[in-house]
Amino acid sequence: MNTRNSALVVEDLKVHFGGGRGLFTTKPTVHAVDGVSFSVPAGATFGIVGESGSGKTTTALAIMRLVPVTAGRVTLGNTVISELDKEDLRAARRQFQIVFQDPYSSLDPRKRAGEIVREPLDLMQIGTRAERDAKVADLFEQVGLRPEQRALFPHQFSGGQRQRLGLARALSTEPDLIVCDEPVSALDVAIQAQILNLMARLQRDLGLTYLFISHDLGVVQHICDEIAVMYLGQIVEQADRVTLFTNPQHPYTKALLAAVPMVHGNKRDRRNRIRLKGDPPSPVNLPKGCRFASRCPMAEPRCHQEVPELREIGAGHKGACLLI
């Protein structure tokens, strides 16, 4: 199967909400995702971190074609996902699947677990009935559930088990790419470790490509190969996992890293950190220059005029700041 080597390529992706004309006025445009580009080699994990509302989920949904793409291109292997028509999109969906944060609300409470995992196979008519049954039993074992648990309903599973079900369902169509939006954020730390280890093992065994969204920098550092930091709809810094954490360049990345309490830290060194003040501006009324300027501890007058471009600042390291 050559699609196993396919990479995800996102080029200048934009998702704007609203902006349509109402009866009397023009509705304001929300620039949720505003020119995002990155690519993920097959079998790798690409992380997206950033403030609440910075556009992480919207980026994920746009790649999945679950929200309308305003502009830009999304390619997975040889398939241009962003340009597929309805029929082709339905067929192509087996290549890319999504796992959501909330294992409670993302599973249909009236369906038995086996049916939930089987559903994508039925919808896409993959294999014979008997083959689908065998496949579901297999998937249960792969994610660490017992095949006899197929007969249970979602409420009879714990949070961690429900996330395993979500993974089994996503894996059912043998996808190349799994988009994971905060997959462990709702789980207790002990269960989170079980799921992260499972995801790493599945990736190794099946050659999966992950797009991994999380606000937990420790988790991202552990699981991702390359990481993009988003702020107000744009990527402000991007690097491999070692570079980003040892040599952060963008003032927002630095502030974000400084904000995380460290288990090896103590009361004393807490005091000497830079702190951000204020809230981010709204994605409706975007400021003129750098979008971070209103909170940036390094901002200069020109930051409020000039827009910093995301550019190469080191080997495989990109940043969007006028001062670096």
């Binding site: 730390v189 002990a190 989170q192 470790a193 992260l196 920098l217 420790g218 988790v219 550092q221 552990h222 699981i223 996992r241 070692v242 954490f245 040892t246 890293l257 995380v260 460290m262 288990v263 090896h264």
Partner: peptide, 11 residues
């Protein structure tokens, strides 16, 4: 303490 992937300054 050990099951959490703690943020490390030098991963």
């Amino acid at each position: 303490i050990t099951c959490v992937p703690h943020l490390e300054p030098e991963p």
